[in-house]
Structure formats: structure tokens, C-alpha cells
Design a protein around this nucleic acid. Sequence first.
DNA 1: CAATGCCGTTGAAACGTTCCATCACAGGGA
DNA 2: TCCCTGTGATGGAACGTTTCAACGGCATTG
Lengths: 355, 355
Amino acid sequence: MRSSVSIRDVAVRAGVSVGTVSNVLNHPDRVAQATRARVLSAISDLGFVRNESARQLRAGTARAIGLVVLDVANPFFTDVARGVEDVASQAGHAVILCNSDESAQREIRHLELLAEQRVHGVLITPSDPSLEPIRRLQRRGVSVVLLDHPSSEPDICSVAVDNRTGGELAVTHLLAEGHQAIVMVNGPAHIRQGRERHLGALDALRKANRDSDLLEVIEVPMLNVAAGLRAGERLLARTSRPTAVFCANDMLALGVLQVMVRAGVRVPDDLAIVGYDDIDFAAAAAVPLTSVRQPRQLIGRTAAELVIAETMSPDEHEHQRVVFTPELVVRESSRRRRRTRRPARRVPAPAGSEV
Amino acid sequence: MRSSVSIRDVAVRAGVSVGTVSNVLNHPDRVAQATRARVLSAISDLGFVRNESARQLRAGTARAIGLVVLDVANPFFTDVARGVEDVASQAGHAVILCNSDESAQREIRHLELLAEQRVHGVLITPSDPSLEPIRRLQRRGVSVVLLDHPSSEPDICSVAVDNRTGGELAVTHLLAEGHQAIVMVNGPAHIRQGRERHLGALDALRKANRDSDLLEVIEVPMLNVAAGLRAGERLLARTSRPTAVFCANDMLALGVLQVMVRAGVRVPDDLAIVGYDDIDFAAAAAVPLTSVRQPRQLIGRTAAELVIAETMSPDEHEHQRVVFTPELVVRESSRRRRRTRRPARRVPAPAGSEV
DNA sequence: CAATGCCGTTGAAACGTTCCATCACAGGGA
DNA sequence: TCCCTGTGATGGAACGTTTCAACGGCATTG
């Protein structure tokens, strides 16, 4: 319990005024060497810890930034978070990590909370397509940077990766491998990333002069492994199966892959799979997963730098729209021509495996 | 910018005193229906958001609990975090998530920060074996619960899984599969979990009347995939290789597995691998990974409940030491007798595969 | 010697809440 | 008529900081 010790107690013990103690804490150069030493020893004697809420109340703003992501369990976001954290802690800011679970309602609650905390800025992957709660926050003077979501309007910073190009890369690759029936396993329609990746997939078809019917979409409610498993089971239960699946992220792809491997469906021979994000686990999957790589940490770093820059000088700040370009990483899960990975392996080539 | 609107502005607009506005916020029953309505509409007109630091300053404590983990990028911890978050948000608390990266120094910095924030309680997986920084926090009246770390002393709550039993389960299983040379890939010595899993492994040897030389230890600096990759390469470079590897967690195991698969080492025939934690990705690995399962979310939930209970009634609180029992999940990565998972597969059985 | 400038320190105001003792008022019972 | 009670509203104190104008003392300068 020890009713917590305040700056006043320290002042009494050191025989100085509270103002001086505060100066020792915040402007050590303003106070004489001897006094400073006295105050510091009083601080350590009493075990004084500055009360951040009081500091904040006076200062008007917290030394923290909020980070709202769709799902912390997704390694993509933890990597982004790592980038954010690096930059933020460099600048002396704490990071408050929130999970919206792709729910607009939870997003609103978290933003409310961050507003009450008077955070400096917020980095957010929006769940609510209207961006309305975010606007409200902005109107209150909080700098906001959209994460993994390009801004359509010019009055807000954003850091994103070109999802449309990513989707196009993935499907162009599958077409080049000769696939004629592709299913895209996508998240809920209000998740913009998925919508854009889908548009990119359609671009790929168009550019290859293929009919857009070639691509069918299966929508799942969440972007995690469990949803991937269910999608895989749905695919398995069908009478006519596609020859390739493009998943909106790696978690879904790993789920689908797991179902296929268990059911004895050969990947990629019977079914090719392409994921998105290239999380670390993609390379270690049952069949190493082809995926679209995004510069995860860099996204986080850039976003954090933007938000900090904006809070430093809100007036001359120019809103930026940073877009990174994704990159296709081809691995075994989508290679028609199978590499003889394991020396002992001598499997009769399935029909149609010649490219 | 809109210099933020305070409770006072609301009061003026609604034609009441600040006390009344505060009552509307905190004790709505105390204020008459009509007044309440007037105040509420003033609040929404002005877009008032309560200043949490002011509230906190007055109340003396934040509505938040801190969660310090070794590595957010480890799915084990994100699952634990999910459990914590569920319980905490139920109780109206925010969760401040910190990453110690297994570094005692970062741990200290984070605890310092949490102390400044006057959090209600802290859940922590300690990096610093001395627990000294944690003691300091306790002395200041913050409730602490050790996470994934049994407490040796009776004056602190802890929630853990019996690591020693887990280690024993893993190695007993490997011995039963006939392995004669086992390597344990372990994290740094100051990480208690790893030390205990190692002790359990030795228990298994003893109970089977085997010589303890049978188990060799490779120590790596971190418990992540990258470290696992390096460990795998070290193993690969050796002239005499073990027949089985037990990794201190799944991230390491996935790293080792990836190296082996790439190098054409057959798993489990040439090298069996057992991991620890049974993260979701373990089942989806190149060769589905045998692992020791821990009740991840439950650990988080229990710890959060304990810390909240302790902060509610610090005096009559009985410190508890909760220990869960782990469970071995056997998958293909350690099964001597290979199941014919893929119909096409007909691999000549390697010598000694008959159990 | 007076004026000036600098350094280190002080004391009080302010930040936005919550809490609490107090008060105004209306209605009911004696 | 007076007193009592209960309901709602009020005003100010308190929480622990930071900031800032003011001040005293000392050295320097004219």
C-alpha cells in the first residue's frame, strides 16, 4: 500500500521547493549540481516514482500512441507492431496496442478509450469502412495514420501496400502455371484489403484475356487459421474442386493447406495454394507456401514516423500517402513442376503436371 | 485542434454545475431525469470526452493492467494475451502490452513505465531471474502475478504450467520411439521455462534408466524462428547427428524443421522433432509437429482474474500458485512408424523403423 | 557605488476530474 | 405553523504535476 510518495515529500526531504524537484526531473541543467544531488538522493531514498497522470494532466497530452490492429494473433500485425514500437520508444512514446477483431464496434470502443487517454496519435487499420469514428478522433486534434489502408482523402496520412497489385501478382502467377479454375478465399466484404486483393485478381484475369467467371470467391467471416480450416472443409465437400486457391492472407492459406494435407489432396498437384503477407510461418508450412510479401516492419516504422512528425508540428505537416509495392515469393505450394525436395521421393507424376 | 472541451464547458452549456456533470458520468441515478438528459445532450453537442488522466489523478489509480511478455511475436503469448484481454475488458480495464524481448533491462524499463502509469496490476513473464524489479513494484502496492513462472515464495501469485512434467512427457515419448541420441535446443539459461523443461527431460532419462549423456543441449540466444534456423544449421554441420531433437518451444522447432526439410533430412525418419506450446502453426508445419500443449488462453484468463481479485481486496487476498498440467500432442514429426498420409506415398522404410 | 545581468530557487496558479459537505426546496406529519 | 425528511443540485477542496513570473544574491560593469 504505502500511500504513494509525491514530489512534495521529496521536496521536504531534500529541503527544497517542489518546483526545484520538478526541475531536477525535467530540466536538470537548470539546477545547481549540489541541489540536484540532494534531490536525487531523496528520490531514491523514498522510492519516488513520478505520477504520469498528473504530468499528463498538466501537459495536456500523453506520451503514448495507440495502435489498433485487426488481430494481434496475426503475425503480420505483430511484425508491424514491432516496427511501430521501435520508432515510438526511440521517441519516448509508449505504444498502446488494441485489437479490433475486425469489429467496427470494438474499434469504436478502443478509439474512445484512446481519446480518453489523450494519446498523441493513433495508427489504425480500420474495420469500419465509413472511417467516421476516425474522423471524429481527428476533429479532436489527434493525429491519425491509416495503416495498411490507403487514404482516399488528402487530409489524412496513410501507409499501405498496393493490395491490388499484390492480388494481381498472385493470380497472374497462378494463370501462368496453367490454372483454369481458381477460388479466392476472402475475408468479410468490409475489410478493404481483401476487396482490393480481389480487384487485383480480376485485373490479372482481364490482362490475360480470361473470363472473370474463372475466379470464384468464398467469403469467410474472419482472417484466421480457424476460418481457413472451415473454408478448406467447404472446398473439400464440393463435387467440383478448383485447381488453385488464392487466400486473402497466410492464416487462411495455412488453414486451407492443413485440411488438404490431412485429406490427402496433393498440394500443389491437385490444388495449388497462394497466400498473402509472407509471415515467417509460411515458409515452414506443410508445403512451403507461395505468398505475397509485404515489408511488415517497414510499414510499422514508417507509420510511426509519420504520426510522430505530425504531432510534432501539426501545422506545417504535409499529409502523406505512402504506398509500398508487394513482391511475390514463389514456393512449393504453387509450383506445378515439383522439385525433388526429398531425395527418397519418387512419386509417379500426376496427369497434367507438365507445364 | 479545438482546445479540448472540459467538464466545465459542458456544465455551462447545460446550465448546471460541474459536480452535476460529474454525477451524470459516474452516478447517473443521483441526478434527475430531466437534468441528466440536458447534460447528455450538451455532452454530445460539444463532443466532450472525459480526460482519463484527470480522473486517474483524482482516483489515484488507472483502470489498466500491464502485461509484460517475452515476445509478442510468439503466438503462445498472443494467445495468452487474448485470454488476459477478455477478462480485463470485462472488468473495465485496459491492457498495456509490453515486450521484454527476454532482456532484463527492457523489463525494468517497462515496469518503470507501468509504475508511472499507476496501473492496477501487472502480469509478467519475468526475464530477470532475481525478480528484484518485480519486488520493487510490489512494495509500491502494485499487485503482480507471475505468468508462466511458478513462484517460489508465498507472497506472490503465479500461474504456470508444469514445465518439468512437459519436458518429461516429450523426452519419454522420444525414448519410447527408440531414440538413443537426443539433442535439446534450449533458450538462454536465464529463461526459467527452458531450464525446467530441461530438468524434466533429465527426469525422463532417469526414470527410463538411461544415461544422462544421452541428452545433449544446444543453447540459443532467443526463442524464435530465426534462432531455430541457426540451431538447425549447426546441427546440420555436425558429423554425428542425433536421431531426435526436443526444442524448448515451437518457434525453435519450426526453425529447425525448416532447415532439415530444405536439406533433405527426412523427418521423422532421419530426425524426429518435438516442440513445445502447440501453437496453431505447429499442426500446419512442413511435417506436422509433435508438441507439448499448454492451455494458453486459460493461463491468461486465470492470471487476469487473480490480479483483478487481488486489487479488489488486497488485504484478504490469498496468494495463489496455480499450476496447469501440459499434454503431449503426438503428430507426424516424431512418429517412427509413418502413417501413409498421402495415398501416393511409398517410401522404403528406413532401417530401424520397426518399433 | 549604483545599475545590470545572471543563476538558482521559490511559490502559486493551473490542468480536469471526483468527492463531499452543504444547501434549497417541496411535501408530509404533528 | 413548524419541523423533519428526502431529493437534487452546488461549490470548493483535493489529487500531483509543470510552468512561470518573481525574487534574492552575487558578480560584473560603468
